[in-house]
Amino acid sequence: MSAQTDGMFEVPIVDISAWVTGGPAAEKARAVRELDHACRTVGFIQIVGHGVPAEITDGLAGAIDDFFGRPLAEKKSYVRPPAENRGYSPPKSESLSYSLGVDPVSRMNDFFEAFNVGPADDDTPNTWPAGLDSFQPGVEAHFAEARRVAHTLTSIFAAALGVDPGYFDRITDHSIDVLRMNNYALPPGDIELGADLTGMGEHTDFGIVTVLWADQVDGLQVLGTDQAWHDVRPADGALLVNLGDITARLTNDVWMSTLHRVKPPVIDGTIRRRRSAAFFHDGNADALIETLPRFVPPGEHPLYFPITVKDHIIAKLSGSRAGRKNTSAVREAARVRAAQI
Rank of each mutant, 00 (worst) to 15 (best):
N183Q: 12
R180L: 00
A185W: 11
V178D: 02
Y304G: 09
D121H: 14
L132N: 04
L317Y: 12
F168T: 01
A158N: 04
A160Q: 04
G269V: 07
D66F: 04
Q221P: 06
A18R: 11
T124Y: 06
T308K: 03
N284A: 11
S318E: 15
L35N: 00
V79C: 10
D236K: 15
E332I: 11
T204W: 04
N109W: 06
V48Y: 03
M200G: 12
D123Y: 07
P129K: 14
I314M: 07
A238E: 05
P302D: 01
H37C: 02
A3P: 00
G224R: 03
G219P: 01
L292S: 09
D123K: 10
W19S: 03
G43V: 08
T210K: 07
M256G: 03
P264K: 09
G7H: 13
N326V: 12
S2K: 13
D282M: 10
F168K: 01
A146P: 05
G138V: 11
D253G: 01
K310E: 15
S328A: 15
A160K: 04
F115Y: 13
T251C: 08
M200A: 15
G23M: 00
L96F: 07
G194S: 01
V211C: 03
A185M: 12
E84G: 00
R170A: 15
I267L: 14
H50D: 03
A73H: 07
Y184L: 08
G51E: 08
H301V: 12
W229L: 09
F112H: 13
C39Q: 05
V117E: 02
S95A: 15
K316I: 10
C39I: 03
L243Q: 02
F295D: 02
A339T: 05
F9E: 06
I208M: 05
D205P: 08
P234Q: 08
A150S: 06
T251W: 09
M1K: 13
A322G: 01
G237P: 03
A25N: 14
A333R: 15
D231E: 09
M108W: 11
N326F: 03
A114P: 03
I208W: 00
T57H: 06
V42W: 02
G237E: 03
D286R: 13
N284G: 10
D6F: 13
G283A: 10
H281N: 14
I341L: 15
D196H: 06
F44S: 11
L239S: 11
E34S: 06
L132G: 05
L250H: 00
I47R: 00
S175Q: 00
N182C: 07
G269D: 05
L161D: 02
S93F: 11
F67W: 12
V42T: 12
H142M: 02
Q136T: 06
T291F: 07
A29D: 14
G319L: 10
W19K: 03
K310A: 15
R70D: 02
G87P: 10
D205S: 09
A214F: 04
G237L: 05
E10G: 10
P91C: 05
S276C: 03
D236G: 13
P90T: 00
A235W: 06
A114W: 01
A73R: 13
V217M: 05
P119R: 05
G269E: 02
A214Q: 08
V48L: 05
G62E: 13
I314P: 01
S2L: 14
S257L: 05
H301S: 15
D169A: 14
V330K: 14
F305E: 14
V262S: 00
